[in-house]
Design a protein around this nucleic acid. Structure first.
Lengths: 193, 193
DNA sequence: CCTAACATGTAAACTGTTACATGATTCC
DNA sequence: GGAATCATGTAACAGTTTACATGTTAGG
């Protein structure tokens, strides 16, 4: 059985259950969106247009079970893992398939080419990277880490571990950019005299 | 004038010139592929299928100039920046458009979900991340850093700076994964007694 | 009452990769 | 002679995002 990455991510989120409730269990497509937005999306993002059709496919494949669960008059459908879904998730986690660590960042591309502009403009590029990661740190602390702490209380430790990696990554970027800003300022200063 | 990201990456590479020659200047699509593979591809990758059509478009837009430059009977076309191309590159570098730092990595996704499997399997996931980054460090040192040092001799300092960031990133990943492996081993040890 | 967030989706567009095709040259 | 690399591309496919459509409910 070969599933898309989106399918495995959704299986994993179904297993974790809603972040803001103290028990594991069923969740809607929207719940999954919200949880992704403060956790896995830092390593793999899914759009709503991928989530809803995939939930249906998982249900048809017998890996998830859906129930109608309207809130008031608003229709809503919640899903939970089946034993087959749990087994499929575990098989995927244990399967050693090659995975690349890929970064996609235009700001770093610009920095790579920064010799084409003068020192002031280059410093702005480094500064933009620093400001962005400082904002990311704020957001991570307020959202990803809080959610992961709740998961940990439910016995899931790895969300917090990966959250810590996110923090460390952006701290590294802040320090890198700050160092570069200072170096550029020093170099253009000494070039001026 | 609105160009694709691929276009700007190619303009930037045209400006840098071939890595292995001591002067700036014209380069073929293949040269660009090779240089990308040891530099910008760590932040933004392009496939050959994007490079060749884009070079033609850049030529038609007057941003690059192409000349036939066959090697023996093998046909080949080299390109160089026009003044308009240089200006467009600089305008892009100075334009403060929002850029996200995006990571895509299935291994980290698996780690996030690692509570679904037992300690041994979870440790394997951390180990896979460590081994992969150790290999990446080797490759970066042997290829990206060497190329960046040549660029620096030609007066371009930022390729080396971004190369250093790549090293720091993977060193962080190695340390993170190693710490996690030890923690998992300790935890499952103490759970066993 | 109005706005923001909740909630579920679909169609079309876009981006990007894979696989393939072709042929020359260099190195073992 | 055969393999690897040089060199240039195209067509088909896969993956993803954007924009839209639709209606509900809670809060100011």
């Amino acid at each position: 059985m070969e599933l898309s990455t989106a399918a495995y991510v959704i299986l994993g989120m179904l297993r974790l259950g809603p972040l803001d409730e103290p028990r594991h269990g069923a969740r809607s497509g929207y719940d999954i969106q919200r949880s992704l937005a403060v956790s896995v999306r830092y390593f793999w993002n899914l759009s709503p247009a991928q989530i809803y059709p995939e939930l249906k496919r998982l249900e048809q494949a017998g890996l998830a079970r859906g129930h109608p669960a309207p809130r008031g008059k608003r229709k809503r459908r919640v899903y939970e893992l089946t034993p087959a879904g749990q087994a499929e998730l575990q098989a995927w986690l244990r399967r050693p398939d090659p995975a690349a660590f890929e970064v996609r960042d235009l700001a770093l591309v610009k920095l790579f080419f920064a010799d084409a502009v003068d020192a002031d403009d280059a410093r702005q590029l480094a500064r933009a990277i620093r400001l962005r990661s400082e904002a990311a740190l704020d957001e991570l602390r307020n959202r990803a880490i809080r959610g992961a702490e709740i998961s940990q209380q439910k016995g899931d430790r790895f969300p917090l571990a990966t959250g810590a990696l996110g923090l460390a990554l952006h701290e590294l970027l802040v320090n890198f950019a700050r160092g570069l800003e200072e170096e550029i300022a020093r170099a253009s200063d000494s070039a001026q005299r």
